[in-house]
Design a protein around this nucleic acid. Structure first.
Lengths: 105, 105
DNA sequence: TCTTTAGTTCAACATCATTGAACTATTGAA
DNA sequence: TTCAATAGTTCAATGATGTTGAACTAAAGA
């Protein structure tokens, strides 16, 4: 058994970390894919193509530690979901506005 | 006469750059101060205390190039305003959500 | 047990941020 | 005018971060 992932509590989620995490094009793309897919998705599926696995892994870690996603091991995969309801409770309208804004690029 | 500041057109403003600019605590503080002051404000006034001038200058450049603020020289000062109406046109609700979210920290 | 799959960790290198020191432009006073 | 003060800018050095190939691990399936 591998050690489980650590996720910040909603209280510990910081706005700066959320913005920082979403300021990267690859991570923003992952979040959009999770948002529109609205179901758990493994890492490679939600990530942009041609992104090296080690880079992918790093980006998921940043998203997780910022509190944007929740990850869980399922067999050989890691499945991820957006923590949107929680985040919207803490930062009303923020994630929705960012995802909408990302749609215009 | 010093060379004038360059500001991206609204069209050239990229979401990633906006998020990146606001992911820094000092820059977020500057933006909040400009938002609540709702009038042109010089650099030192809007910046957090004890921030070295060269660092300040760097942060204003990042905010300017991201399209968040508009700067103009007035005598020995540089006065800055938030480009909020413009930004809200391009990214509806985004800046408002971020400023509101920043208020809860 | 062996192989495949999916992801992680490590280490090296590249890129970027911070800031002291020197500089510039403008203003106001003498 | 000249001089000093004010407000920012630029440069260069250092420190902190991001990216990624290579080696590794854990689970699943043949």
């Amino acid at each position: 058994m591998q050690r489980p992932f650590l996720h910040p509590t909603l209280e510990d989620v910081r706005l700066e970390s959320v913005l920082y995490a979403l300021a990267d094009p690859a991570r923003l793309a992952i979040v959009r894919t999770l948002a529109f897919g609205n179901c758990p998705m493994n890492c490679s599926t939600a990530a942009p193509d041609n992104l090296p696995k080690s880079t992918q892994s790093h980006h998921y870690q940043v998203l997780r530690e910022a509190g944007l996603i929740r990850s869980e091991r399922k067999g050989t995969e890691v499945v991820n979901v957006l923590r949107c309801e929680e985040l919207d409770q803490k930062f009303p309208g923020l994630i929705a506005a960012i995802i909408a804004a990302a749609g215009r690029a």
